[in-house]
Nucleic acid binder design. Structure first.
Lengths: 336, 336
DNA sequence: CTTTGAAAGTTCAACGATTCAACAAATAAA
DNA sequence: TTTATTTGTTGAATCGTTGAACTTTCAAAG
């Protein structure tokens, strides 16, 4: 492994001169610079990031904490984030929480130990108003940008969010305009703020349409296909007379739709189904799903932008991006 | 930032003792260890990875080079890889190539500069028999495991592969057994060995069924939904009389199926379609796709295993995992 | 009552790049 | 000729951690 020292020996100048020449410092003659750079290249010199990191206290490393990369929503975010970070000379470390607080904690600690220059976190939501590891981040003053709605325990960090409430509102409004009045809602994880916001958008749209939200149309689901399946079974079991189902996300919508189809119900003729998120599967599902497109790519890019501002010591403010309704074949006017 | 030195001052012992105690060295008494560990915890000590890396010449870092994280196949691999790596105390850096050689080169160089302890690469396939970066990796002796079939330019590295040929052979055999004789094949990227292997499996199965492979049933596609769409249009345009289509992967199959459905053809009644890969979308597609399940999770785990052997200086051999046919609704006997 | 040996802890130096303060040489100004 | 200024270069210190060698203490073995 070639070190500065080795180049110095070959070139007959001090290590310092080499270091400065390679970094284009102002006080090295153009001649020397050229000579040294050529030599370094020829010898195959590659700087040692550990040594640089130790000396300069900066690692050019971002830590990215997400629930799971297999969730298409996050895959897209990672995709964009990695791309932009590389353009800026940063590398990206990945940690998956599977929505378990202890895994989140473990991942964040590892990143802090690596002295990452910045932390992007999609939080694991909990009921508690405090979370130790978030206090540690604050104490360490590691620049941090949240991906998603901030909960009480992380409310002091800037966040890049999606306008969840408004987007969900548009979905419900769309169903109402098609003529639906009895719209079931499949809720998300009870601790997740985004799930509450989406639910709130649904309720607001109903009220504006002079339909009083009724708990008998609300079913507890979650965030996975299985959660959607279970909620749908529950709904069928209760002989619910809903003419449409609005799900908290696409996976739940898929689980729901699968179950309804198995019961020989036709979508959208017998019942409409709408999702949220616009994952690939939603587009190519048996019945292409009406859903909401989240600007995930732009969200990631904006988050990196925000991070750079944080790193440069500037003030930053949380931002919310608007999402867009996509009408497909899974929604139609109710029967009769 | 708390350093060993700070703990040492508080505890009234040498820095070395602290270091050893925290790492459970044998020559520190249980008492002292407990005392020091408690103190470290209380003071919020987090070791500095840069310093550790500099000193020990090991970064506990893996570099993972893949085409794109948005491709569900790789998402799954990253998922497993990250999990296993963390269990072993390693962090994972991510780089996406988008199948462009220059991006691959750039990513690998960055990882080498970071002195990663190991490199997992899903190669960008090219026609050339040599590739400079791969020679650099070899020169640096960085432990490397390939994910996927090795091409000439990287044939000297151990690889974790899928039995592509055999799996593809099973798909064709399945179609033949259903009674198909005129089976179209949508090929993958021309440079990709895995694509050739799958094609080879198709040809072998045909020959064994005494059907001579005919080029008029072969259409150049690629690896994306759009590629599948284009190949399907081409096929329709040529009035091909195939009763089934076997696609090189699921995305191509989806693009193909979408196009056929738009032409009012019924799947599988009018024409069968089979994919390869078993991505989520295949399972929940309009017509659930017959496909091949690749053991991606196991592949990743085995790749890490192989890496650990490499790191420990043991000899390793490339391995091939078998994939399994999944019969769904998109294939059926031909009409009439 | 020495000798041996293990246990517990210490000291010193090093890893490789960067930065600070200092210095030499060359040039310009007084 | 002297002084000041610019330009190019250097040695030593530093970042936080750890490997290797060394000292001290105390108990067991001879």
């Amino acid at each position: 492994m070639v070190r500065l020292k080795d180049i110095a020996r070959h070139a007959g100048v001090s290590v310092m001169t080499i270091s400065k020449a390679l970094r284009d410092a102002p006080d090295v003659s153009a001649n020397t610079k050229a000579r040294i750079k050529a030599l370094a290249l020829q010898m195959g010199y590659v700087p040692d990031s550990s040594a640089q990191g130790l000396r300069t206290k900066t690692t050019k490393l971002f830590g990215l904490v997400i629930p799971a990369i297999t969730n298409p929503v996050y895959a897209r975010i990672v995709f964009a984030m990695e791309e932009r970070a590389h353009e800026l000379g940063y590398d990206v470390l990945l940690a998956q929480t599977l929505n378990k607080p202890e895994r989140e904690e473990y991942g964040i600690r590892r990143f802090l130990s690596r002295r990452v220059d910045g932390l992007f976190i999609s939080p694991v939501y909990r009921f508690e108003a405090e979370a130790r590891v978030y206090q540690e981040i604050a104490a360490r003053k590691t620049p941090t940008v949240l991906l998603g709605t901030p909960a009480p325990f992380c409310k002091n960090f800037p966040a890049m969010e999606i306008e969840e409430t408004l987007a969900s509102y548009h979905v419900t409004q769309h169903l109402v305009r098609l003529g639906h009045k009895r719209i079931a809602y499949f809720t998300g994880p009870p601790t997740a703020p985004w799930a509450h916001e989406r639910f709130e958008g649904y309720r607001r749209a109903l009220r504006e349409a002079n339909v009083e939200p009724d708990d008998k149309y609300v079913f507890a689901a979650g965030a996975t296909i299985d959660d959607g399946t279970n909620a749908a079974l529950q709904m069928l079991n209760e002989n619910c007379d809903a003419t449409a189902v609005q799900a908290v996300n696409d996976l739940v919508a898929v689980g729901c739709a699968e179950t309804l189809l198995k019961q020989k119900l036709k979508i959208p003729e017998d019942i409409s189904v709408a999702g949220f998120g616009n994952i690939l599967t939603a587009e190519y599902y048996r019945v292409p799903l009406t859903t909401v497109r989240q600007p995930k790519y732009r969200l990631a890019i904006a988050a990196v932008e925000m991070m750079m501002n944080l790193i440069h010591g500037e003030k930053v403010q949380s931002k919310r991006l608007v999402a867009e309704l996509i009408e497909r074949e899974s929604t139609a006017p109710p029967k009769g």
